[in-house]
Amino acid sequence: MICLNGMNKILIFLIMTPVFCFSNALDNTFAHYLENEGEIESSIIEYKRLLIDSSQIYNTDGIHIKISRLNMRIGNYKDALYELNKLENNDKINNLKGISYMMLGDMERARNDYFRNDTLIGISYILENRFNRAGKYIDISNPPKLKNPYLGLTLSIIIPGMGRVYAGRTFDGIYSFMLIGSSALSSYLYFRDNNRVFGYTYGVISALLYMGNLYGSYKACKIYNNYSIDVYKNNELIKLKFSKWF
């Protein structure tokens, strides 16, 4: 048994009093729990409550940063900036501010005023689809080869369905070629048999299908390009661990 004399008791009392009194103030267990459960908005409210409780006693920069990161995670970049503007600038804060501006679409401001990190500058160029420029700052794999929509259109003018094959939709191309070909052939056969009514009907149908195919080929190339760029961007951002900044 430890015997404490009077002076020691007083000393222990003086040391432990603030610990017991204010231990609840920074107990962020519940906020962590909410965050892990995916209740980000409730977690932000809990962190703000902690901020109110502890603002008089502790340095609350960490809580401000946490709130801004959570806001960024749910896409509230303006709220994140509001929290970050309360803090003194340093590299970490500047990066977070830059990311918020970048996600709000103000790439130039993010790059010029905040980013001092090559990875983040490269990411900003990737998000702008300027892959060659991004390659100057970071190592990225070769960007995808895009399809020219006008070439797709031209191919479809020459052979119906060829534009779709060029855009990577082989079966759609074959199907549309068969549709257009069979209706055009029907039209020809009816005209040959002097059945003008059906001849014109199939002629109009094949002409409409042909025009629709031209539009479809052009759009198929554009959709292919958008899809390829999206996949490439996602892969690069995963490789660069972009999510770790949030």
Binding site: R169, D172, L179, L209, M211, G212, N213, Y215, G216
Partner: peptide, 11 residues
């Protein structure tokens, strides 16, 4: 045109 394109894709 969109509708015709869709008909050609519907298989």
């Amino acid at each position: 045109l969109m509708a015709i394109d869709r008909l050609e894709r519907c298989n």
